[in-house]
């Protein structure tokens, strides 16, 4: 009934899929890191960013998500570099420190499979925000932000290496962790973990990715 056939899980709820609404923005007011309810720090950042982007870049922010005391802006990929420049240069925002790029692969989120996630920190205002940019598997291109945050140089190379996201405009987008001639991008969900079964005292223990999963 809950799609549990074949798994060793007998609880009956193992395969239960929770469907959640896609692409919803958090409602105002966003509040701050300690919780919502009343307008707080996150509202200031969002207002200031909106003002800074103006009419010309008004479409840059796809949605704003506040979750677990963290503020995330989903940015349209064409606008990423401009938004980053605003975030860095506007004195009221001043996110001068970037903590690099992280990638995530959601193979089931059609059209938005690959994500690049940027964590920015403002030393001036002591705040943090997150930017998330998505691109489809079929067109894995995201503009490079090395010109805004030079520290992204290696981070973008790493994300390219692991996820195959091509950062257009990067000065030298090559693999960084894997060997130059490696085939495939290992952190993608369709890339197997690998491993071999191990025999221990007569019993065979399957490779980690072959073991029973409860998720």
């Amino acid at each position: 009934m809950f799609g549990t056939s074949g798994s060793g899980d007998t609880s009956g709820y193992g395969g239960l899929v929770v469907r959640r609404g896609q692409g919803l923005s958090s409602p105002r007011p966003y509040g701050g890191p300690d919780g919502g309810g009343t307008p707080g720090e996150f509202d200031e950042v969002a207002d200031e960013l909106e003002r800074s982007l103006g009419d010309e870049l008004a479409d840059a922010i796809e949605r704003v998500v506040v979750d677990r005391g963290e503020l995330t802006f989903h940015i349209k990929r064409e606008r990423l570099a401009q938004v980053a420049a605003h975030l860095r240069d506007n004195a009221a925002l001043r996110f001068e420190l970037s903590l690099g790029v992280s990638g995530v692969h959601y193979p089931n989120d059609t059209g938005r499979e690959l994500r690049a996630v940027y964590h920015l920190c403002s030393i001036t205002h002591n705040r943090r925000i997150r930017l998330e940019v998505s691109c489809p598997d079929s067109d894995p291109h995201i503009p490079s932000t090395v010109s805004v945050y030079p520290t992204h140089n290696w981070h973008e190379r790493e994300t390219y290496d692991f996820f195959g996201i091509v950062f257009d405009g990067h000065p030298a987008l090559t693999r960084i962790e894997m060997p130059d001639d490696w085939v495939g991008h290992p952190q993608r969900k369709d890339y197997p973990l690998g491993g071999i079964p191990v025999e221990y005292r007569g019993a065979e223990i399957p490779a980690p990715d072959e073991r029973r999963s409860y998720a």
Binding site: G100, S102, V104, H105, H119, T151, W154, Y214, A215
Partner: peptide, 16 residues
């Protein structure tokens, strides 16, 4: 939502 991490990324200071 599962019993395993979906993705873990470390921003290691040595790397940067």
């Amino acid at each position: 939502g599962g019993t395993r991490p979906y993705r873990v990324h470390f921003r290691d200071p040595s790397f940067t």
